[in-house]
Nucleic acid binder design. Sequence first.
DNA 1: ATTTCTTTGAGACTCATTCTCAATAAGGGC
DNA 2: GCCCTTATTGAGAATGAGTCTCAAAGAAAT
Lengths: 141, 141
Amino acid sequence: MSKNKEKLKKVLHKEGLRFTSQREAVWNEIISSDEHRNADEIYMAIRLNGVLVSRATVYRTIDVLVKNNMVRKLDVGVGPSKFEHKMNAPHHDHIICIQCGRIEEFMVNQIEDLQDSVAKEYGFKLVRHIHQLFGICKDCQ
Amino acid sequence: MSKNKEKLKKVLHKEGLRFTSQREAVWNEIISSDEHRNADEIYMAIRLNGVLVSRATVYRTIDVLVKNNMVRKLDVGVGPSKFEHKMNAPHHDHIICIQCGRIEEFMVNQIEDLQDSVAKEYGFKLVRHIHQLFGICKDCQ
DNA sequence: ATTTCTTTGAGACTCATTCTCAATAAGGGC
DNA sequence: GCCCTTATTGAGAATGAGTCTCAAAGAAAT
């Protein structure tokens, strides 16, 4: 059994949820690409593969994956949220072009550390963060 | 004429928009409080003051104010967006409790500088950013 | 095999936000 | 002030992402 399938089984078990072919199909579709896709795009991709999974199940499954840190939810400021898997991908944040929608990934250790300090200072136990820079990319300027 | 009214007039003029009593009412309501309120709360507050402004106008006006950096839009992860004015208020970002919804403000110069570096590195002209830390506050832990 | 509990799918529903369009009001020129 | 042009407004319809419902189907337990 693949490592990814293992991972899914483990998380579902931890959540007290059953391993089903639908949930596997959603997870497989999400890890099959490094694109930032919305729920509907993921749903359509699964259908194109000939598998029948409802939109509701796609949303429900994504929720579980996001909650368990396997998928990141991305609010791009306009339209539906986008999702990306976090398997083997190092942590990163995003810089987004407000003209063309282009998304680049960035990661600065110093910023991560400073975030931890802020959380500590305010007595918060940090769960996640959103850090998105919006601007005009080189091509659109 | 108050400085705030001046500011609104200037921005509306710059945008080629007219100065109207409705837009003034929305702006006045927003600067009257330092709370983080959603569009509907702002709408209701205006009505309580006896002024009649439609929901559509509240949304339309907020859009202009956000675009012109007079108001900050806050996506708190669940439910409607919240808004806060930026008059005389130094720049800050937010740390949000995912249990009780409490919002604290923080500001770290070093993070701001690092953001600028990232934008520069990727060739982006930075327009705005979202930086929100989500966690469990002291009281909810 | 029977019971129990979870999951699923189809579509209804929610609710923040945006759109429509006829009526109204600003702003500029006279 | 009065016209004229053009923008703005309000009421409610429309949109659309996401969630919920509930009967049918499937898995697990006994």
